[in-house]
Design a binder for these strands. Structure first.
Lengths: 160, 160
DNA sequence: CCGATTGTCGATAAAATTGATCGTGATTAT
DNA sequence: ATAATCACGATCAATTTTATCGACAATCGG
């Protein structure tokens, strides 16, 4: 039930791009790699795959780099993880995107399958409904909470 | 996000044991392997691990074999999968059973982590709350449904 | 046009993991 | 005793993962 480094790096890179100030233009592989602590050459491969899948656009040369090809609200983590890490489903016979029949005599009464179908649906419900925009928004909220003084037990009223 | 063969085989073997007629006594590795289409020697390893973890008991010799060490209602798929396949969490920094810090500057505001924590919780909610007894019960229900004639759109009243 | 910068692409490789298999021994029932 | 069965360690082949290298192509600023 593990996310590969490939998947991890890809998601991190996209979150990095999504939370980047658009005024700064495209981000180079080197920048993202340094920022997220990812081996440059490995990240290169990953970003290329994301580009070929239509999630990123790029431009070579001075001032070049990568940028999101669509608004962050239109890129789900489900897409990204499937692309870089394969199907979300724990076993192929419950995958929607890469279904493969299993060997059990009847899929509809297979105990393993019934349970793993629940698992795959739970995972997909989260990842297919979480966009890069959702993630950056949650991160901002978490950062605000972290920078505010510790909350009290009961709500405070302003002093007057 | 994949379940290994090891995990798959282990769960299948346990479900097999849980749904087995207790009057028949212990089941041999050979029997389970044949029934579930699992390589004998591989299954041997797996059952041994499950035994050492206290989920199975065994006896060698004629009439020997494996049986559940506890009632099926007390063995969760979460235990089994963790044992055979490692942590449920997609990344180590959201694992409860095998937490490992990650490299990001602040775990509490890491976008990847926040999302993967949801995923790990969703998976654990299912697998830690599903016992072998739950599984065999669902299987029986599914089998009954499969053997009954196809249901109509609206409830039928008995002919008279 | 030059040359620095940066993405593109294919090949390769080291390490880890997975999915087994083999052989030998230990234990038990008959 | 002996046949059946679990116990256990070693080993192994294939695959997957995680990269790394080097050459090439596109782009931009001057």
């Amino acid at each position: 039930m593990k996310l590969s480094k490939r998947g991890e790096y890809g998601v991190k890179a996209l979150i990095d791009l999504a939370s980047r100030d658009p005024a700064r233009g495209a981000a180079t592989v080197k920048e993202i790699a340094a920022h997220q602590k990812i081996p440059v050459k490995f990240l290169e491969q990953i970003l290329l795959a994301l580009k070929n899948a239509g999630l990123l656009r790029s431009r070579p040369g001075a001032g070049g780099g990568y940028a999101l090809a669509k608004p962050p609200g239109q890129i789900t983590l489900g897409q990204v993880v499937r692309l870089l890490d394969g199907p979300l489903a724990p076993i192929p016979c419950v995958s929607k995107s890469a279904y493969q029949p299993c060997v059990c005599p009847d899929e509809n009464t297979c105990g393993l399958r019934l349970t793993m179908l629940d698992v795959r649906n739970a995972i997909a419900d989260i990842l297919d409904n979480t966009t890069l925009a959702d993630v950056t928004q949650r991160v901002e909220q978490a950062q605000q909470r972290a920078s505010r003084p510790a909350p009290r037990g009961r709500p405070r009223r302003p002093a007057h």
